[in-house]
Simulated scan of single mutants.
Amino acid sequence: MSGGNPATPGRRRVPAPGGEVSGGNLAARQAQLVAALVAGGPLPPGFAAAPVEAARRALLRKRAGDVARHWPLLAAGVGDAWPATFAGWAAGRPTNGSLRDGWDLARELRDRGTLPPLGAEELAAREAATRYDGRTAPRPRRLPAVARAGGAVAAQLAGRVRLLRPAPR
């Protein structure tokens, strides 16, 4: 095993940019690269800007597709502008998972007054069925609930959600 460490067989030590071998430095550089790719962090030294930017855009498109699978009415309501709308919102945010990312985006669009009617109906139904505070994982509601979003009203009773009033079109 050339380059291996006898204390940890099978693991190779990788030289850092200055030539020294340091596992902690590699981990820090990997964390910087991940932050640049998914959380809007600065480009770490030693990386070419164009390939990192291309990878970042590809990851945003992938995230947009994943969120659209969890929030199909929101994505359909936004229409052809969905990839750009999602990418603009997500560009500087690390993911919280597709379900929560869609929820956070829908709430932000609602607060801005730009939530499309289909998205409003989907958000109202989700909020009637599930409790989500924006920080912790969503939890099913146990008690009856009514939720409103963008003119849509949904109610949950005994685990069933009904759209009482659709959003104005």
Rank of each mutant, 00 (worst) to 15 (best):
R61K: 08
G113M: 14
R112D: 12
P144F: 03
A137I: 01
A55D: 09
P166Q: 08
L118P: 07
P83V: 06
A152E: 06
A87S: 15
R57Q: 15
G97M: 02
A84F: 00
G65M: 01
A68H: 03
G4F: 00
L157E: 11
A49W: 00
R142D: 14
R29H: 08
R165S: 10
R131H: 14
W89L: 03
P42K: 02
A147R: 00
L109A: 13
G102N: 09
L99F: 14
D133R: 14
A91H: 09
A129T: 04
A125P: 04
A76E: 15
L74Q: 07
P94E: 15
R142S: 12
R107E: 14
A145D: 05
A128E: 05
A125G: 07
Q30G: 04
A55T: 13
Q30A: 13
D133A: 07
G40A: 05
V21N: 01
G77E: 04
E53V: 02
W82C: 01
P140N: 02
P51E: 10
L37A: 13
P15N: 05
A48N: 05
G4T: 12
Q30N: 10
A76W: 02
A152T: 09
V67G: 11
P51H: 07
A16H: 07
A68G: 08
R57I: 00
A124F: 01
P168H: 03
L37N: 11
G41L: 09
L43F: 03
G41F: 10
G150Y: 04
P138T: 03
D101W: 08
R12T: 08
P6K: 00
A167C: 04
G65F: 00
V161W: 03
V14P: 00
R63E: 10
A54K: 12
L105A: 06
V67Q: 11
V153A: 01
V146E: 15
T85C: 13
G10E: 09
A81Y: 08
R169K: 05
L73G: 15
R142C: 03
A49F: 00
A36S: 13
P15R: 14
T130N: 05
A124S: 06
F47S: 04
S98A: 15
W89Q: 04
R63H: 05
A49D: 14
A75F: 01
A106E: 11
G134T: 07
G24V: 08
R162K: 08
R13H: 08
G10W: 04
R12S: 07
A75W: 01
D80N: 09
D111S: 15
R107W: 13
G65T: 06
